[in-house]
Design a binder for these strands. Structure first.
Lengths: 123, 123
DNA sequence: GGTGTATTTAACCTACTAGTTATTTAACTG
DNA sequence: CAGTTAAATAACTAGTAGGTTAAATACACC
């Protein structure tokens, strides 16, 4: 995975981890608190937290026997920055669908031509 | 992985695949064209394309023996929407960093005062 | 129909992921 | 100190990811 952005996306590619981040938007939480919504063992959660920590998406403190986790949104800023470069492409998508349908129609009529005409280049 | 967002993030968690998407922002391309920048076999690229296709990030046409790929940014819109929920957290963290730096400066000048600094501080 | 080119599929390998249970570490509490 | 609670680590498993080479498929041209 190597690079920062891949690590971030990798960490986000799991619904449990995204749910954990969502939970952390309402404040710090202990590992047990974070684990409680999930039908999953503590070590599993512990591993998810390690992934999030390595990706810089959470930070962990120490308070007696608790390890409170808190959200660190820095990497998400980078994600927002990355995805922003593609904005015009999703905004165009309706036009594109339109183009695509038009293209389909054209192709369709060409196919029909092919049945009569042998060789014909685009242009 | 199951859900749509996980699939999207999973597809984005690879630098080769992100580079392919970036290339596609400048228009359709064949598999060979997409493969050329990478020191990687064609089948490997083919697999990456399959991942991107399954995630709905590209669509593939058919023109003779070529399979031109084009960007489909819909899922990226969802990513943008998801990450947007966290905006206040990264903005807040900058504020915090700012506060921290301001705090440091204040402390710094106090420390210097304590040491009976001869040179006068600005600001 | 044979040949060349573009691309996918098959079979395989290695490494990692996401989960498990059992054990260990760390800190508080009586 | 013994017991309890919070969390991490160890050791294991099944499945998946990302790559390889070799073979198969799809199409165009002569």
């Amino acid at each position: 995975m190597a690079d920062r952005l891949s690590e971030t996306f990798g960490a986000l590619a799991d619904p449990t981890r995204r749910a954990i981040l969502a939970r952390l938007t309402s404040g710090e939480a202990s590992v047990t608190e974070l684990a409680s919504p999930f039908a999953m063992s503590m070590p599993a959660i512990s591993k998810h937290l390690k992934v999030l920590e390595r990706a810089g998406l959470i930070a962990r403190g120490r308070e007696a026997q608790w390890r409170p986790c808190r959200l660190q949104a820095g990497p998400l800023h980078d994600v927002a920055g990355w995805v922003e470069h593609y904005r015009r492409f999703w905004e165009q998508s309706f036009d594109r669908l339109d183009d695509y349908l038009r293209e389909l129609k054209k192709k369709d009529s060409k196919d029909k031509e092919k049945k009569h005409v042998r060789k014909q280049r685009k242009g």
